[in-house]
Measured scan of single mutants.
Amino acid sequence: NQASVVANQLIPINTALTLAMMRSEVVTPVGIPAEDIPRLVSMQVNRAVPLGTTLMPDMVKGYA
């Protein structure tokens, strides 16, 4: 099963992502692949992401 990127904390809108904000977890539906975590660092979210939410490509500016 593919691990996805999950929010490790509440991430406010327009926040630049850091490693501490993300974790890898096997979830359904599948979100951004966990191997993309290094690429996500310093990218901004375009909405508030609650703790435990799977990051989807449309939630991260410049990812999709």
Rank of each mutant, 00 (worst) to 15 (best):
I13E: 14
P57D: 06
P38Y: 09
L10H: 09
D36N: 15
E25Q: 08
S42G: 15
E35Y: 06
S24H: 15
A20L: 13
I13G: 10
P29C: 15
I11W: 01
M56F: 10
N1A: 15
P50W: 13
M59A: 10
M22T: 02
A16F: 11
V49Y: 02
P12A: 08
G62C: 12
L51G: 14
L17M: 08
M59N: 05
M22C: 03
V6K: 04
R47S: 10
A48G: 09
A20Q: 11
N46Q: 14
S42P: 03
P38N: 15
N46H: 11
Q44M: 13
N8E: 12
A48K: 06
P12T: 09
M22Y: 02
Q9E: 15
A16N: 08
D58P: 09
I37R: 14
L17H: 00
A64I: 14
T54I: 12
L17V: 05
A7M: 05
P12C: 11
T15Q: 15
S4E: 01
M21Q: 04
Y63A: 03
A7E: 00
V60P: 01
V26H: 06
N46D: 09
R39V: 05
L19R: 07
I13Q: 06
A34T: 08
V5P: 02
G62L: 11
A64S: 15
L19W: 14
L55Y: 00
V41M: 14
M43E: 05
P33D: 08
R39Y: 13
T54F: 02
T28G: 06
A64Y: 03
T18Y: 06
G52E: 04
S42I: 03
A34W: 10
M43L: 11
T54C: 04
L17I: 11
L51C: 06
M59F: 09
V60C: 02
V26N: 10
V60K: 01
T53M: 12
V27W: 02
S24W: 08
V49N: 01
V41D: 03
S24K: 08
T15S: 08
V6W: 02
Q9H: 10
R23I: 04
V6F: 02
R23M: 13
S4R: 02
A34D: 15
E25D: 15
A7K: 00
N46L: 13
G31Q: 02
N46S: 12
M43H: 08
R23N: 05
L40G: 00
V49A: 06
T28D: 15
V27P: 02
A34N: 06
G52V: 01
V60F: 07
A16D: 07
M21N: 05
P33L: 07
V27T: 12
A48W: 05
V41A: 08
I37G: 06
P33R: 10
T18F: 04
V5K: 00
V27D: 02
T53H: 14
V49G: 01
N14T: 06
V49I: 14
N46G: 08
Q44T: 13
A3Y: 12
G62P: 11
P50G: 04
V49P: 01
L17G: 01
A20C: 13
M21K: 04
N1T: 15
M43I: 04
P12G: 15
E35H: 06
Q2A: 11
Y63F: 14
R47Q: 08
A16K: 06
T53R: 09
L19Q: 05
D58Y: 11
E35W: 06
P38F: 08
